[in-house]
């Protein structure tokens, strides 16, 4: 965010501000007390929070079943105070299908990374979307396999260095970074498909609205709602968090542009 030239100033003593009645933002109760296992600056934490805030605000926590993937967020169920299932790598949309079909009155979301959703789980992703399963998929795209130590992901950018593409991803050998969200948006079974990011306050606000909308679509039985979040992996990218979000802006977003790809309308 551009720095304001005028720095505001107030003389109110801190002990008059820091009182319970003046709280305007605090951690949602749907977080457990466990410390997030993610690296400093990782976007997973914000994505987790937005999902939990939306669930809290909709008052549906007692009807939600979440699905954790394999990847850095494999332990997502340690942090979300919800009933959750842990899926095999890539299979979350199949679990979600089984849950939702036999429990149509519940809310079901899967939380998946790029390797999970767009490589090993491509079939499950595409077919759950194509059947119009009435679920919400949250897709974290940081262009790399974080959990296993920074290997190439299906979404790794051309030329991007990873531990398995140490000289950069060569599309002639490794193919091009897959825009799975664009693929998913093609399918008639999806009702809402959007790409968001969470590395600035303004984008966080937008992303939260998108996640809320995705759950509202599920509530309205409209089909599969899909929210991609372009995120950073400072450790995998070998940068500081601040460098990483700058790199994300300059490299990821031109290839993965933000915004709604599909929104059929909630009415």
């Amino acid at each position: 965010m551009a720095k304001s030239k005028v720095i505001p100033h107030h003389d109110v003593p801190l002990d008059q501000i820091i009182k319970p009645e003046n709280i305007i933002f605090k951690k949602t109760k749907l977080f457990t007390d466990n410390v997030l296992s993610y690296c400093p600056g990782c976007g997973h934490g914000v994505a987790h929070r937005l999902i939990l805030e939306v669930i809290e605000e909709m008052g549906i926590a007692d009807k939600v079943i979440g699905i954790a993937p394999v990847g850095c967020s494999v332990l997502a169920y340690e942090f979300m105070d919800l009933d959750m299932q842990e899926a095999a790598h890539g299979r979350a949309p199949a679990l979600a299908t089984g849950i939702k079909r036999t429990n149509p009155d519940k809310f079901v979301f899967s939380y998946q990374g790029d390797g999970d959703l767009a490589a090993i789980g491509t079939a499950e992703t595409i077919h759950a979307a194509n059947r119009g399963e009435n679920i919400t998929v949250i897709f974290i795209n940081n262009g790399i396999y974080g959990m296993t130590g920074g290997q190439m992901a299906p979404t790794t950018l051309e030329g991007m260095k990873t531990s398995t593409t140490p000289y950069g991803r060569d599309p002639r050998q490794m193919g091009h970074p897959i825009k799975i969200t664009e693929l998913v948006a093609q399918l008639p079974g999806t009702c809402y498909v959007t790409r968001q990011a969470v590395h600035t306050a303004a984008l966080v606000r937008k992303a939260k609205k998108a996640i809320r909308r995705a759950f509202e679509y599920q509530k309205a039985n409209k089909g599969l709602s899909f929210v991609e979040i372009v995120s950073n992996c400072n450790s995998g990218w070998k940068m500081t968090p601040v460098q990483a979000i700058k790199w994300l802006e300059e490299n990821m977003l031109p290839y993965y542009p933000l915004g709604d790809l599909k929104d059929v309308g909630l009415d």
């Binding site: 965010m1 720095i7 505001p8 100033h9 107030h10 003389d11 109110v12 801190l14 008059q16 501000i17 820091i18 009182k19 003046n22 709280i23 305007i24 933002f25 605090k26 951690k27 949602t28 977080f31 410390v35 997030l36 993610y38 400093p40 600056g41 990782c42 976007g43 997973h44 934490g45 914000v46 929070r49 969470v198 590395h199 600035t200 306050a201 966080v204 606000r205």
Partner: peptide
């Protein structure tokens, strides 16, 4: 610089670990 804080939430919104509580009057 606490006197410059407006409670705009920007810090809290981007904090990946939700360690920031924000107050405003």
């Amino acid at each position: 610089n606490p006197s410059a804080c407006t409670g705009c939430l920007a810090c809290a919104l981007v904090c990946p670990d939700t360690v920031i509580t924000v107050y405003r009057v």
